[in-house]
């Protein structure tokens, strides 16, 4: 990890040097706040819980994460800097990991900026800290999975918008896969597969404050799988 630290720093710096990160960050924070206080109507719900706040996040991430990651590879490909990047004295896996971690750190920072929500509301009721911890842990893991999907979408194309759309629809499919499990006439096995690949279904336990090893393993395996696929594409491009 220390070997790729300069790469992560460079990637993070380039993310922060574009207005996109700030536009997305502000939009995310304001949207979440408006949803929670005015549309979900937290005061009227009269429940000392942030389930409403975190309940929408998997959906929000389907748009937010591809917007954060769409530049990472697609822009390099378009500008032709990818070839230069790939000649750095790092393996493809390390280069891809650095980009993944940089985007994930940015997402983590955005989530850290939501911490004032529980902090400012805690005096109103008996919020369960364990539940909130589970919610943050779950959304971080879901974010890591989403970032890896976004990165993979970005490496497949040379156009940012294409990368965004590919990432968006991939995440949308993964987030809502459990709904397809209810399709009439679907065999049990297929329904089970759809349910298994749903990001939001695996997030559900975290949202309640329960850590289930099945969900934990899923959220760890998804980034590994998509990171592997990203590296595979990079290697294929390099040798093509």
């Amino acid at each position: 990890m220390p070997r790729i630290a300069p790469l992560i720093k460079k990637e993070l710096g380039s993310l922060f040097n574009t207005p996109m990160a700030y536009i997305l960050g502000v939009t995310f924070l304001v949207f979440q706040g408006v949803w929670f206080f005015f549309l979900y109507r937290f005061p009227v719900m009269n429940e000392a819980s942030l389930r409403g706040y975190f309940g929408l996040m998997p959906g929000v991430f389907t748009a937010l994460v591809p917007a954060l990651t769409m530049r990472s590879w697609a822009e390099e490909m378009r500008l032709g800097t990818a070839e230069l990047y790939l000649t750095l004295p790092y393996r493809e896996g390390e280069l891809a990991l650095a980009k993944l971690l940089a985007s994930f750190l940015l997402l983590t920072l955005l989530l850290a900026l939501t911490l004032p929500v529980p902090l400012t509301l805690s005096s109103l009721g008996d919020f369960d800290p364990g539940e909130i911890l589970g919610q943050y842990l779950g959304i971080l893991l879901l974010g890591a999975a989403a970032v890896s999907v976004g990165q993979f979408a970005s490496v497949l194309t040379t156009n940012q918008m294409s990368a965004f759309l590919l990432g968006f629809f991939s995440l949308l499919a993964l987030t809502t896969a459990h709904l397809a499990a209810g399709a009439p006439g679907l065999p049990d096995g297929a329904a089970g597969v759809f349910r298994y690949f749903s990001l939001s279904a695996h997030y559900e336990s975290f949202r309640k404050g329960v850590l289930d090893s099945r969900d934990l393993v899923f959220f760890l395996l998804v980034p590994v799988l998509f990171q592997l696929l990203t590296v595979r594409v990079l290697v294929w491009r390099k040798w093509r």
Partner: peptide
């Protein structure tokens, strides 16, 4: 008890809500 009844005074309760809205919708962004 998962209600939001810890602060009994409605005025104080509304003030806390307003503060939270201001912080999360304006100050942090």
């Amino acid at each position: 008890d998962t209600g939001l009844g810890r602060i009994e005074d409605p005025g104080m309760r509304n003030a806390v809500l307003l503060f939270s809205r201001m912080v999360n919708l304006f100050v942090v962004p």
